[in-house]
Design a protein around this nucleic acid. Structure first.
Length: 309
RNA sequence: GCCAGGGUAGCUCAGUUGGUAGAGCGAUGGACUGAAAAUCCAUGUGUCGGCGGUUCAAUCCCGUCCCCUGGCA
Protein backbone atom coordinates (compact mmCIF):
# COMPACT_ATOMS: atom_id res chain seq x y z
CA UNK A 1 0.00 0.00 0.00
CA UNK A 2 1.36 3.31 -1.10
CA UNK A 3 1.13 5.93 1.63
CA UNK A 4 0.85 8.74 -0.91
CA UNK A 5 -2.43 7.29 -2.20
CA UNK A 6 -4.03 6.95 1.21
CA UNK A 7 -6.47 9.79 1.81
CA UNK A 8 -5.03 12.07 4.42
CA UNK A 9 -6.95 12.28 7.68
CA UNK A 10 -8.55 15.56 8.71
CA UNK A 11 -10.90 16.41 11.51
CA UNK A 12 -13.67 18.96 11.01
CA UNK A 13 -15.40 20.72 13.87
CA UNK A 14 -18.50 22.56 12.70
CA UNK A 15 -21.51 24.08 14.45
CA UNK A 16 -23.28 27.36 14.97
CA UNK A 17 -21.56 30.45 16.26
CA UNK A 18 -20.96 30.45 19.98
CA UNK A 19 -21.24 26.70 20.51
CA UNK A 20 -17.63 26.31 21.62
CA UNK A 21 -15.94 25.11 18.44
CA UNK A 22 -12.68 26.88 19.20
CA UNK A 23 -12.37 25.33 22.64
CA UNK A 24 -13.20 21.90 21.25
CA UNK A 25 -10.63 22.32 18.50
CA UNK A 26 -8.01 23.34 21.02
CA UNK A 27 -8.74 20.29 23.17
CA UNK A 28 -8.60 17.98 20.16
CA UNK A 29 -5.44 19.56 18.79
CA UNK A 30 -3.70 19.30 22.15
CA UNK A 31 -4.67 15.65 22.47
CA UNK A 32 -3.70 14.44 18.99
CA UNK A 33 -0.94 16.84 18.03
CA UNK A 34 -3.01 18.90 15.64
CA UNK A 35 -3.00 22.20 13.83
CA UNK A 36 -6.19 24.23 14.05
CA UNK A 37 -7.16 25.55 10.62
CA UNK A 38 -9.83 28.23 10.34
CA UNK A 39 -13.00 27.49 8.34
CA UNK A 40 -14.78 30.73 9.05
CA UNK A 41 -15.28 33.53 6.57
CA UNK A 42 -14.96 36.31 9.18
CA UNK A 43 -12.14 35.18 11.39
CA UNK A 44 -9.80 35.83 8.49
CA UNK A 45 -9.88 39.60 9.05
CA UNK A 46 -6.92 41.09 10.86
CA UNK A 47 -8.88 44.15 11.96
CA UNK A 48 -11.49 42.25 13.96
CA UNK A 49 -9.95 39.61 16.23
CA UNK A 50 -12.29 40.37 19.13
CA UNK A 51 -15.52 40.94 17.22
CA UNK A 52 -15.14 37.80 15.12
CA UNK A 53 -14.09 35.73 18.15
CA UNK A 54 -10.70 34.65 16.86
CA UNK A 55 -8.57 32.50 19.15
CA UNK A 56 -6.52 34.49 21.64
CA UNK A 57 -2.73 34.65 21.49
CA UNK A 58 -2.54 32.41 24.52
CA UNK A 59 -4.46 29.73 22.64
CA UNK A 60 -2.41 30.17 19.50
CA UNK A 61 0.74 29.69 21.54
CA UNK A 62 -0.44 26.37 22.87
CA UNK A 63 -1.21 24.85 19.49
CA UNK A 64 -0.41 25.94 15.91
CA UNK A 65 -3.28 27.88 14.27
CA UNK A 66 -3.62 28.72 10.58
CA UNK A 67 -5.69 31.09 8.41
CA UNK A 68 -6.73 33.45 11.17
CA UNK A 69 -6.54 37.25 10.90
CA UNK A 70 -4.50 37.50 7.72
CA UNK A 71 -6.77 39.61 5.52
CA UNK A 72 -7.16 43.37 5.39
CA UNK A 73 -10.60 44.94 5.71
CA UNK A 74 -10.81 46.00 2.07
CA UNK A 75 -9.86 42.55 0.78
CA UNK A 76 -12.36 39.91 -0.20
CA UNK A 77 -12.15 36.18 0.27
CA UNK A 78 -14.25 33.67 -1.66
CA UNK A 79 -15.14 30.03 -1.26
CA UNK A 80 -12.75 29.08 -4.05
CA UNK A 81 -9.84 31.08 -2.67
CA UNK A 82 -10.52 29.71 0.77
CA UNK A 83 -10.47 26.13 -0.48
CA UNK A 84 -7.07 26.69 -2.10
CA UNK A 85 -5.64 28.29 1.04
CA UNK A 86 -7.03 25.55 3.23
CA UNK A 87 -5.59 22.82 1.00
CA UNK A 88 -2.17 24.42 1.42
CA UNK A 89 -2.62 24.71 5.16
CA UNK A 90 -3.66 21.05 5.38
CA UNK A 91 -0.64 20.00 3.34
CA UNK A 92 1.63 22.05 5.59
CA UNK A 93 0.18 20.42 8.68
CA UNK A 94 0.66 16.94 7.28
CA UNK A 95 4.20 17.82 6.28
CA UNK A 96 4.81 18.79 9.89
CA UNK A 97 3.23 15.51 11.02
CA UNK A 98 0.31 17.29 12.62
CA UNK A 99 -3.36 16.46 12.28
CA UNK A 100 -5.33 19.22 10.50
CA UNK A 101 -8.34 20.25 12.56
CA UNK A 102 -10.65 22.44 10.50
CA UNK A 103 -12.82 24.59 12.67
CA UNK A 104 -15.50 27.04 11.70
CA UNK A 105 -19.09 27.73 10.89
CA UNK A 106 -18.97 28.64 7.22
CA UNK A 107 -20.68 25.66 5.64
CA UNK A 108 -20.02 26.78 2.09
CA UNK A 109 -16.28 26.97 2.73
CA UNK A 110 -16.23 23.48 4.19
CA UNK A 111 -18.19 22.16 1.22
CA UNK A 112 -15.86 23.89 -1.21
CA UNK A 113 -12.85 22.38 0.51
CA UNK A 114 -14.10 18.85 1.13
CA UNK A 115 -16.53 18.39 -1.75
CA UNK A 116 -14.74 20.53 -4.31
CA UNK A 117 -16.05 23.56 -6.13
CA UNK A 118 -16.67 24.28 -9.82
CA UNK A 119 -13.57 25.52 -11.65
CA UNK A 120 -15.02 28.87 -12.71
CA UNK A 121 -12.41 31.40 -13.85
CA UNK A 122 -12.24 34.53 -11.74
CA UNK A 123 -14.66 37.29 -12.72
CA UNK A 124 -13.09 40.76 -13.10
CA UNK A 125 -14.13 42.90 -10.18
CA UNK A 126 -15.25 45.79 -12.39
CA UNK A 127 -17.70 43.52 -14.16
CA UNK A 128 -19.05 42.18 -10.94
CA UNK A 129 -19.46 45.70 -9.55
CA UNK A 130 -21.28 46.82 -12.70
CA UNK A 131 -23.94 44.12 -12.30
CA UNK A 132 -24.33 44.92 -8.62
CA UNK A 133 -24.84 48.60 -9.42
CA UNK A 134 -27.38 47.74 -12.03
CA UNK A 135 -29.18 45.46 -9.62
CA UNK A 136 -29.32 48.25 -7.08
CA UNK A 137 -30.69 50.65 -9.66
CA UNK A 138 -33.19 48.41 -11.43
CA UNK A 139 -33.98 45.84 -8.76
CA UNK A 140 -33.43 42.09 -8.75
CA UNK A 141 -36.64 41.33 -10.65
CA UNK A 142 -35.50 43.30 -13.68
CA UNK A 143 -32.19 41.43 -13.70
CA UNK A 144 -33.97 38.14 -13.21
CA UNK A 145 -35.84 38.92 -16.43
CA UNK A 146 -32.52 39.56 -18.18
CA UNK A 147 -31.21 36.26 -16.86
CA UNK A 148 -34.33 34.43 -18.02
CA UNK A 149 -33.53 35.69 -21.48
CA UNK A 150 -29.82 34.83 -21.51
CA UNK A 151 -29.54 31.85 -19.15
CA UNK A 152 -32.99 30.36 -18.60
CA UNK A 153 -31.66 27.36 -16.70
CA UNK A 154 -30.09 29.49 -13.99
CA UNK A 155 -33.09 31.81 -13.92
CA UNK A 156 -35.41 28.87 -13.30
CA UNK A 157 -33.42 27.91 -10.24
CA UNK A 158 -33.29 31.37 -8.72
CA UNK A 159 -35.98 33.34 -6.95
CA UNK A 160 -36.55 36.74 -8.62
CA UNK A 161 -35.64 38.49 -5.37
CA UNK A 162 -32.34 36.73 -4.87
CA UNK A 163 -30.18 39.65 -5.96
CA UNK A 164 -26.88 38.10 -5.01
CA UNK A 165 -27.24 34.87 -6.94
CA UNK A 166 -28.82 36.60 -9.93
CA UNK A 167 -25.89 39.00 -10.29
CA UNK A 168 -23.48 36.12 -9.82
CA UNK A 169 -25.11 34.15 -12.65
CA UNK A 170 -25.02 37.20 -14.91
CA UNK A 171 -21.42 38.09 -14.22
CA UNK A 172 -20.21 34.52 -14.76
CA UNK A 173 -22.10 34.36 -18.03
CA UNK A 174 -20.60 37.61 -19.24
CA UNK A 175 -17.07 36.92 -18.01
CA UNK A 176 -16.79 33.35 -19.28
CA UNK A 177 -19.25 33.27 -22.14
CA UNK A 178 -20.82 30.19 -20.58
CA UNK A 179 -23.79 29.85 -18.23
CA UNK A 180 -23.26 28.85 -14.62
CA UNK A 181 -24.80 25.46 -15.24
CA UNK A 182 -22.05 24.62 -17.72
CA UNK A 183 -19.44 25.11 -15.02
CA UNK A 184 -21.43 23.35 -12.36
CA UNK A 185 -21.83 20.29 -14.60
CA UNK A 186 -18.09 19.89 -15.01
CA UNK A 187 -16.54 17.29 -12.72
CA UNK A 188 -14.98 18.99 -9.77
CA UNK A 189 -11.84 17.76 -8.08
CA UNK A 190 -12.86 16.03 -4.88
CA UNK A 191 -10.96 16.70 -1.70
CA UNK A 192 -8.65 13.74 -1.18
CA UNK A 193 -9.18 13.69 2.54
CA UNK A 194 -10.42 11.14 4.99
CA UNK A 195 -12.56 13.52 7.00
CA UNK A 196 -14.22 13.05 10.35
CA UNK A 197 -16.99 15.65 10.55
CA UNK A 198 -18.18 16.69 13.96
CA UNK A 199 -20.97 19.14 14.64
CA UNK A 200 -21.47 20.74 18.03
CA UNK A 201 -25.16 21.08 18.77
CA UNK A 202 -26.80 23.64 21.05
CA UNK A 203 -30.46 24.58 20.68
CA UNK A 204 -31.22 28.18 19.72
CA UNK A 205 -33.03 28.67 23.00
CA UNK A 206 -29.95 27.73 24.97
CA UNK A 207 -27.62 29.56 22.65
CA UNK A 208 -29.33 32.96 22.72
CA UNK A 209 -28.43 34.00 26.28
CA UNK A 210 -24.88 32.82 25.63
CA UNK A 211 -24.67 34.98 22.53
CA UNK A 212 -25.84 37.97 24.53
CA UNK A 213 -23.22 37.32 27.17
CA UNK A 214 -20.60 36.97 24.48
CA UNK A 215 -21.45 40.35 23.00
CA UNK A 216 -21.08 41.97 26.42
CA UNK A 217 -17.77 40.17 26.86
CA UNK A 218 -16.55 41.39 23.47
CA UNK A 219 -17.40 44.95 24.39
CA UNK A 220 -15.66 44.46 27.71
CA UNK A 221 -12.63 43.15 25.85
CA UNK A 222 -12.42 46.26 23.68
CA UNK A 223 -14.70 45.68 20.70
CA UNK A 224 -15.42 49.41 20.38
CA UNK A 225 -11.75 50.29 20.41
CA UNK A 226 -11.11 47.61 17.82
CA UNK A 227 -13.87 48.91 15.55
CA UNK A 228 -12.72 52.50 15.99
CA UNK A 229 -9.19 51.59 14.92
CA UNK A 230 -10.57 49.71 11.92
CA UNK A 231 -12.71 52.71 11.04
CA UNK A 232 -9.60 54.86 10.77
CA UNK A 233 -7.86 52.37 8.52
CA UNK A 234 -10.90 51.55 6.43
CA UNK A 235 -13.86 53.92 6.71
CA UNK A 236 -15.94 52.44 3.88
CA UNK A 237 -18.87 50.50 5.39
CA UNK A 238 -19.22 48.55 2.14
CA UNK A 239 -15.71 47.11 2.44
CA UNK A 240 -15.84 43.31 2.70
CA UNK A 241 -14.45 43.24 6.23
CA UNK A 242 -17.22 45.41 7.59
CA UNK A 243 -19.99 43.05 6.54
CA UNK A 244 -19.44 40.80 9.54
CA UNK A 245 -22.04 40.70 12.29
CA UNK A 246 -21.04 43.07 15.04
CA UNK A 247 -18.71 44.96 12.71
CA UNK A 248 -21.57 46.44 10.68
CA UNK A 249 -23.57 47.34 13.79
CA UNK A 250 -20.55 48.95 15.46
CA UNK A 251 -19.75 50.90 12.30
CA UNK A 252 -23.25 52.37 12.40
CA UNK A 253 -22.89 53.20 16.07
CA UNK A 254 -19.44 54.76 15.79
CA UNK A 255 -20.49 56.93 12.86
CA UNK A 256 -23.40 58.26 14.91
CA UNK A 257 -26.23 56.42 13.19
CA UNK A 258 -27.40 54.39 16.19
CA UNK A 259 -27.00 54.50 19.96
CA UNK A 260 -25.17 51.74 21.76
CA UNK A 261 -28.29 49.95 22.99
CA UNK A 262 -29.70 49.75 19.48
CA UNK A 263 -26.34 48.59 18.24
CA UNK A 264 -26.19 45.79 20.80
CA UNK A 265 -29.80 44.74 20.21
CA UNK A 266 -29.22 44.44 16.45
CA UNK A 267 -25.92 42.72 16.97
CA UNK A 268 -27.63 40.06 19.07
CA UNK A 269 -30.58 39.72 16.70
CA UNK A 270 -28.32 39.28 13.68
CA UNK A 271 -26.08 36.82 15.48
CA UNK A 272 -29.12 34.79 16.44
CA UNK A 273 -30.49 34.87 12.88
CA UNK A 274 -27.13 33.66 11.68
CA UNK A 275 -26.91 30.85 14.22
CA UNK A 276 -30.34 29.66 13.09
CA UNK A 277 -29.18 29.53 9.47
CA UNK A 278 -26.10 27.59 10.47
CA UNK A 279 -28.16 25.09 12.44
CA UNK A 280 -30.34 24.58 9.34
CA UNK A 281 -27.25 24.12 7.17
CA UNK A 282 -25.54 21.54 9.37
CA UNK A 283 -28.75 19.71 10.22
CA UNK A 284 -29.14 18.36 6.71
CA UNK A 285 -25.61 16.96 6.55
CA UNK A 286 -26.03 13.43 7.85
CA UNK A 287 -22.36 12.58 7.53
CA UNK A 288 -21.72 14.63 10.65
CA UNK A 289 -21.25 13.18 14.09
CA UNK A 290 -23.36 15.32 16.41
CA UNK A 291 -22.00 16.01 19.88
CA UNK A 292 -22.90 18.32 22.73
CA UNK A 293 -20.14 20.87 23.35
CA UNK A 294 -19.21 19.60 26.82
CA UNK A 295 -18.60 16.07 25.64
CA UNK A 296 -14.81 16.34 25.44
CA UNK A 297 -14.39 12.62 26.13
CA UNK A 298 -16.69 11.76 23.22
CA UNK A 299 -14.83 14.21 21.01
CA UNK A 300 -11.39 12.83 21.85
CA UNK A 301 -12.55 9.24 21.52
CA UNK A 302 -13.99 9.94 18.07
CA UNK A 303 -10.74 11.62 17.01
CA UNK A 304 -8.62 8.72 18.29
CA UNK A 305 -10.83 6.20 16.49
CA UNK A 306 -10.63 8.17 13.26
CA UNK A 307 -6.85 8.36 13.44
CA UNK A 308 -6.60 4.64 14.22
CA UNK A 309 -5.02 5.22 17.60
C1' G B 1 -62.42 61.65 42.41
C1' C B 2 -63.40 64.17 37.47
C1' C B 3 -62.21 64.72 32.10
C1' A B 4 -59.93 62.71 27.74
C1' G B 5 -57.52 58.78 25.00
C1' G B 6 -56.59 53.68 25.04
C1' G B 7 -57.08 47.95 26.15
C1' U B 8 -57.14 43.45 19.06
C1' A B 9 -51.31 37.96 17.36
C1' G B 10 -45.15 37.17 21.57
C1' C B 11 -44.37 43.07 20.63
C1' U B 12 -46.03 47.84 18.05
C1' C B 13 -50.42 48.91 15.90
C1' A B 14 -54.34 48.88 11.73
C1' G B 15 -59.39 47.45 10.84
C1' U B 16 -64.48 45.85 10.82
C1' U B 17 -70.65 52.07 8.28
C1' G B 18 -72.69 45.04 13.20
C1' G B 19 -71.77 39.19 9.32
C1' U B 20 -65.92 36.48 14.59
C1' A B 21 -59.90 40.24 11.80
C1' G B 22 -54.49 41.88 9.19
C1' A B 23 -49.67 44.57 8.60
C1' G B 24 -44.67 45.34 10.34
C1' C B 25 -41.33 43.27 13.71
C1' G B 26 -40.39 38.78 16.35
C1' A B 27 -40.75 33.42 16.25
C1' U B 28 -40.55 28.72 13.54
C1' G B 29 -39.27 25.79 9.17
C1' G B 30 -36.47 25.79 4.62
C1' A B 31 -32.99 26.87 0.47
C1' C B 32 -27.85 27.50 -0.33
C1' U B 33 -21.71 25.77 -5.95
C1' G B 34 -16.74 31.56 -5.52
C1' A B 35 -19.94 38.45 -1.19
C1' A B 36 -22.02 32.91 2.62
C1' A B 37 -21.48 36.38 9.67
C1' A B 38 -23.92 36.95 2.61
C1' U B 39 -28.52 36.35 -0.15
C1' C B 40 -33.34 34.54 -0.43
C1' C B 41 -38.15 31.70 0.41
C1' A B 42 -42.46 29.79 3.27
C1' U B 43 -45.75 29.86 7.65
C1' G B 44 -50.75 34.39 10.95
C1' U B 45 -57.31 31.33 15.50
C1' G B 46 -56.10 35.51 18.33
C1' U B 47 -61.70 34.15 24.87
C1' C B 48 -60.55 41.59 19.44
C1' G B 49 -60.00 43.43 28.59
C1' G B 50 -64.43 40.95 31.99
C1' C B 51 -69.71 40.57 32.64
C1' G B 52 -74.54 41.86 31.09
C1' G B 53 -78.01 44.13 27.29
C1' U B 54 -79.96 45.28 22.22
C1' U B 55 -79.91 42.22 17.66
C1' C B 56 -81.15 36.74 13.41
C1' A B 57 -75.92 38.03 14.40
C1' A B 58 -71.57 42.06 18.76
C1' U B 59 -64.69 42.57 18.57
C1' C B 60 -67.76 46.88 16.61
C1' C B 61 -73.74 49.77 19.41
C1' C B 62 -75.57 50.47 24.84
C1' G B 63 -74.72 49.68 30.25
C1' U B 64 -71.38 48.33 33.90
C1' C B 65 -66.80 46.79 36.02
C1' C B 66 -61.38 46.21 35.72
C1' C B 67 -56.59 47.88 33.86
C1' C B 68 -53.07 51.47 31.29
C1' U B 69 -51.61 56.62 29.69
C1' G B 70 -52.14 61.87 29.95
C1' G B 71 -54.58 66.24 32.02
C1' C B 72 -57.40 68.51 36.13
C1' A B 73 -58.11 68.13 41.25
Amino acid sequence: MNAAQTPLPVIVIAGATGTGKSAAALAAASAVGGTVINADSRQVYADFPIITAQPADEEKNRVPHALYGFLRCAEKLSAGKYAALARDAIAAAHAASRVPILTGGTGLYLNALLGGIAAIPPVPEALSKAWQERCKAEGPRALHAVLRDRDPRSAAKLHPNDSQRITRALEVLEATGKPLGYWHDLPRPAGAYDALGICLDVSLGELTPRLQTRIEAMIEAGALREALAALERCPDPDAPGWSGIGCAELHAHLTGKTDLDTCKARWLQHTRDYAKRQITWFRRDNSLLHLVPDDTDGLLAACARHLGR
